[in-house]
């Protein structure tokens, strides 16, 4: 016998909701605007962080350049002037803001090209790699995770969970090296790096297949590490849902166990999973840096690696802002998806 026990604070709120039910379905537009506003604030915070991390923290970017090649004091001063580093901090910040607003991230020290041009060039390969990996990892992870939870403690569950735990413990870059060594270096099944073999005309079906061929090892690496996390998340949230009362109702109605799972348990377990899955998109992007480095995939990750080795501050700043922006947009997406999945958010 369980009695409805509501602490006073909640009871007061519940009373209000009792009266206020139904009349306040938040409009889609209002929700959208609120979420876009939140994303915009995050974006502004990224931009500000991008400035302060590189200017305020100890470590003068010009001094870093000076470390790597011999320079005279005049040359340094000239460089400082060139990058606007001799101006007051506030003026620098203002310049930085106006520049970013117009898509100007400065000029790369290493490449001698505008950072925005480089990013535009390296953007799509990264999207192709991470996008493919994300879709595969999410599909695989959620599917295997819900099966594992439903048959918890079965041999399947033990194998699936065990494998996931091992993969979860593997550094992405090492798995990349391992696959490269086995399938690229030793067996020669797949290319050892790059996005496309030389001498293939762009736009042909052959070109497309060749890119796919190059994509296999990097995608396997990223999927292997990330799907394991998703599997564990989905498994945990479905297990949490398994003792819910409405599942007993569904069983009492005469549903088969399969339908109880598909129609009732999984849609509810997806809710917390979606939030966590998108939260881990940041991890996926982080993985792109090392995977692209190992497989010489011409994407933003490799660009980041080159920016570190430079060191190339404007380039690093640019990739940092762009990576963060991608993730913020993905999370905005997650919020909209969540609203579709959960009526309690849709009609709150």
């Amino acid at each position: 016998m369980s009695t409805d026990v509501i602490p006073p604070g909640k009871a007061a709120i519940a009373e209000q909701q009792d009266e206020g039910r139904e009349s306040h379905r938040q409009s889609f537009l209002g929700y959208l605007l609120a979420k876009i506003g939140g994303a915009a604030i995050s974006l502004v915070m990224v931009v500000i962080l991008g400035f302060f991390a590189f200017r305020i923290l100890p470590g003068d970017p010009v001094r870093k350049i000076a470390q790597s090649r011999p320079m005279t004091a005049e040359q340094i001063a000239q460089l400082r002037h060139q990058y606007g580093l001799d101006q007051p901090m506030l003026a620098q910040f203002w310049n930085y803001l106006t520049n970013i607003a117009t898509g100007n991230f400065g000029e790369s020290y290493v490449y001698g090209k505008p950072v925005s041009e480089l990013i535009a060039q390296y953007f799509w390969p990264t999207i192709a790699l991470t996008g493919t990996s994300a879709i595969l990892a999410i599909t695989l992870g959620l599917w295997m995770g819900q099966l594992a939870a439903w048959r918890s403690n079965s041999p399947y569950d033990q194998v699936a969970t065990g494998t996931s735990l091992v993969l979860w413990s593997v550094p992405t870059f090492w798995l990349a090296l391992l696959l490269l060594m086995i399938f690229g270096g030793t067996l020669h099944w797949f290319p050892t790096g790059g996005m496309v073999s030389t001498g293939i005309p762009t736009g042909t079906p052959e070109y497309f297949l060749n890119v796919l061929w190059h994509l296999v090892l990097p995608v396997i690496t990223m999927v292997a590490v990330v799907y394991a996390q998703y599997l564990l998340v989905m498994r945990a949230s479905l297990l949490e849902e398994m003792s819910a009362d409405y599942l007993t109702t569904a069983r009492a109605k005469g549903l088969t166990e399969d339908l109880v799972r598909r129609r009732h348990a999984v849609p509810n377990a997806l809710l917390p999973t979606v939030t966590l899955v998108f939260m881990h998109i940041g991890g996926l992007i982080g993985g792109a840096v090392t995977v692209e480095t190992v497989f010489s995939w011409p994407g933003l990750g490799k660009l980041t690696y080159e920016a570190i080795s430079g060191p190339d501050t404007p380039l690093l700043q640019g990739t940092f802002v762009v990576f963060s922006a991608i993730i913020i947009v993905m999370n905005l997406f997650a919020d909209l998806l969540y609203r579709q999945l959960d009526p309690r958010v849709r009609r709150a």
Binding site: D245, Y246, T248, T249, A250, A252, P267, N268
Partner: peptide, 13 residues
């Protein structure tokens, strides 16, 4: 069931 609690699936009409 004690429907005032959780016996109905929250994501279905």
């Amino acid at each position: 069931f004690q429907g005032a609690m959780h016996a109905l699936n929250p994501v279905r009409t």
